[in-house]
């Protein structure tokens, strides 16, 4: 009886969020189309700097760029809906194949980064909250501040010099072995740690002041149970949301990190295609990253509904 009720509220919740996500996807589709077409004369960029007016006219004709924008949009959107993201001008293969090929690398790198970030940020955030105002707390917050100030590409280069060249512990580029994921994963994690840590800390400080924590203490529960069961679950919601956003940043931010460490993922593909005016690929990667963001936000909402029963209705 209870389970049926639980499942039905959960399902209606998921359907409502899915519907909203579909609307956001449509918006992103329109915007990513608009941005590529507003960024200048596509035919001229494709033809390159040495092209004649006649060349440009031919390209315009061949790619159908002379048609009204609305017609071009529905043509493109129709193909996207069928899973056809167009062909790369550079590699002369379907874009969807290019992304599919490189996606596992980027996902593996993003997840590595996320796991490293959580392993560092959550315990430090919890400890800082439990010792609020102490020297330990201030030290941890100082690390967070430094973390926010250090740019990822610079940290990446420093790590390459130290662990790759001087100590020779880790490979300086590529992902031929799992060791290749460590440095780029850490660089990605580094950008996410300060936000995750701050949010864990502030959420835990608030939760630890709550009346229900006093009740838990009055029940004689152990400190571990009080902190990890009663406080953390209530502090977790904003952390889950920001984790999803940070994973999105990491996957998007992998454009820089992947090019520093020469990791052949989606980010590296994006960097290559931007520098070489391969517009179908740029457009597809933008769209693809946007969809990942939306999916992550949806996932975060669903996890929050699991964490807080009050959100399920």
């Amino acid at each position: 009886m209870h389970l049926v009720f639980y499942l039905s509220t959960m399902l209606s919740f998921i359907f409502r969020r899915l519907w909203l996500s579909a609307l956001v996807c449509l918006t992103v589709l329109v915007i990513s189309f608009m941005l590529t077409h507003l960024s200048g004369d596509l035919a001229a960029s494709i033809a390159g700097p040495n092209a004649t007016a006649a060349d440009i006219a031919i390209i315009t004709k061949n790619y159908g760029l002379d048609r009204p924008l609305v017609v071009q949009f529905f043509d493109w959107a129709g193909h996207v809906a069928e899973g056809d993201l167009g062909r790369s001008y550079l590699f002369h293969v379907p874009v969807s194949g290019l992304i599919r090929e490189r996606l596992p690398v980027t996902l593996a790198l993003g997840l590595t980064g996320l796991i490293i970030a959580m392993l560092i940020a959550l315990p430090l955030g919890i400890i800082a909250a439990m010792r609020e105002g102490s020297a330990i707390d201030r030290g941890i917050m100082l690390i967070a501040l430094l973390g926010q100030a250090v740019p990822g590409f610079w940290l990446g280069l420093l790590l390459i010099v130290l662990f790759g060249l001087n100590l020779q512990w880790l490979p300086i580029s590529g992902i031929d072995t799992w060791k290749g994921y460590i440095m780029p994963g850490f660089v990605l994690a580094f950008s996410a740690i300060p936000a995750l840590m701050r949010l864990t800390r502030s959420g835990m400080i608030e939760a630890l002041c709550a009346d229900y924590i006093r009740t838990a203490r009055a029940k004689g529960l152990s400190t571990t149970t009080i902190v990890l069961k009663h406080a953390l679950r209530n502090a977790a919601m904003p952390v889950v949301s920001i984790t999803a956003v940070q994973l999105g940043f990491m996957l998007g931010g992998s454009v820089v990190t992947e090019s520093v460490f020469a990791v052949p993922g989606v980010g590296y593909l994006a960097w290559e295609s931007i520098t070489k005016n391969d517009f179908p690929v740029v457009q597809a990667v933008v769209l693809f990253l946007a969809v990942i963001y939306i999916a992550l936000a949806l996932l975060a909402d669903m996890m929050n509904a699991l964490l807080d029963p009050r959100l399920r209705i």
């Binding site: 709550a210 009346d211 229900y212 006093r214 009740t215 838990a216 069961k229 009663h230 679950r233 209530n234 964490l307 807080d308 029963p309 009050r310």
Partner: peptide
């Protein structure tokens, strides 16, 4: 109201 944990 506030003395009970809303999450459990």
């Amino acid at each position: 109201m506030t003395s009970l944990n809303p999450a459990y």
